[in-house]
Design a protein around this nucleic acid. Structure first.
Lengths: 246, 246
DNA sequence: ACCTGAACACCGTTCAAGT
DNA sequence: ACCTGAACACCGTTCAAGT
């Protein structure tokens, strides 16, 4: 009522926070992305939230992509802390669980992480070192160690980032209609395996759901997935030990 | 020499292509993304490339996100065609290989696919039906079928989209320096497992590379990954058949 | 029905100028 | 050293107007 929208003018900073630095820029960016989503995030809203003009950001950070890269690091850099595993199997179990919990807390960065983090240069050497150490413990050496390492990283990132990635629309009713029209709107009796299992899969499976992991988490699929990944690596480790197999 | 940059004015359409439609919009969009990358893609350059004003696009397509969603579908909708498998294991082997080949041809859409496709509503019911049918063949029913299905989708999308996702910079020398400074720039002797295996992993592993899958594909890691996924699912199928286990 | 031409409300980034 | 204030070169999208 009578309020004027003034996006260009920064709000005054409070007395306690009258100096900017790069850490508070990245932390505030993560807060804003958590709250408003990635699409609404901009340097200008970030600056406004910090009470400065947009150009002030560039004194501390070279560009927007650098902020986003540091946001993904911030969202995932605690995943090692809770892990207390003795065996390599238990380590992987806890690693995948811990990573998923991090994404669950920051679902709006999920797409950033799958898009940037792995291909690029985020995570800490500590994490990489511990993964490699546990895979050596499992018996992997040489090219098999490389394969096992890449399998672990892809497995860690691949599931959870998909599970929690925001849907195509905020309106789950609209999303549901798109899914249903695509799955149902076909000649009856054509996709027999799919339609037979549709009650089981509906809203519980990739490409057949209308809510993302925040509202409808894959809480029973994920343990299955973890055990499948570990069993697969156990099999490959055993295969390595009898090289006559090919 | 003397050329004037005129981004706002559309080039005249040739006589053969003087009518627009949604299919050619999506196809041209994919071409432009393949050629110039996702960051440079815009409705305005797309319109310019088609010889029309930007607003003309909106007669056929509701918004930019819809174009991108249809681009991901276009880039991946042929993956079933080459598959001639008899067993479910061989089907998964060919599926993961075929999906990776699709991403290899369109690396600049990799981040779109991991960000949108799976969480959302892209793929054809045919693909889903065939995956479900082969997992039933493997012996999965009930919640285990859901787990196996989600495992297959996450496995299919997770690795290849990461592998081919564009790096943080076009300059691989710069990328290399970032990776090296992060991995090397630590107290010597601290990350023993990592530094011991660094020659093996360098530029062949996620987070330890400075080229993406286009220049340095994970051609030996991917078969390892496929076999690990299949072996893991075989293990879970066998576990299902003796329910006293757990 | 299909597209133009212009406008609206934004962007990221740069840069001289202030303090 | 750190930030302002304004500008540049873009965006996606809307809409009256043309044909």
């Amino acid at each position: 009522l009578g309020k004027v929208k003034r996006n260009t003018a920064p709000k005054p900073r409070s007395a306690t926070e009258n100096r900017l630095d790069d850490q508070m820029i990245v932390e505030r960016a993560l807060e804003l992305i958590d709250r408003e989503g990635l699409e609404k995030f901009s340097i200008r809203t970030l600056a406004g939230s910090l009470g400065v003009y947009p150009a002030a950001i560039y004194w501390y950070v070279p560009n927007r992509n650098e902020i986003l890269a540091r946001v993904t690091t911030l969202a995932t850099d605690k995943i090692l802390e809770t892990i207390r595993a003795r065996t390599w199997q238990q380590f992987l179990r806890e690693l995948l669980t811990s990573f998923r919990e991090a994404i669950r807390k920051h679902p709006n960065v999920a797409t950033l992480i799958s898009g940037q983090m792995v291909g690029n240069s985020a995570h800490s050497p500590q994490l990489i070192d511990r993964i490699v150490a546990h895979l050596e413990e499992a018996g992997f050496t040489g090219p098999a160690l490389v394969g096992a390492y890449n399998t672990v990283i892809a497995a860690m990132v691949g599931f959870a980032t998909q599970e929690f990635a925001p849907g195509p629309t905020d309106d789950s009713q609209e999303w549901r209609e798109v899914v249903e029209s695509r799955v149902m709107g076909t000649k009856s009796g054509e996709y027999t395996a799919l339609s037979r299992n549709l009650p089981l899969l509906a809203n519980k499976a990739f490409m057949l759901r209308w809510q993302n992991g925040v509202e409808a988490p894959f809480d029973s699929s994920y343990p299955f997935y973890i055990e499948a990944v570990i069993a697969g690596l156990e099999h490959m480790a055993a295969r390595k030990r009898r090289p006559g197999r090919g």
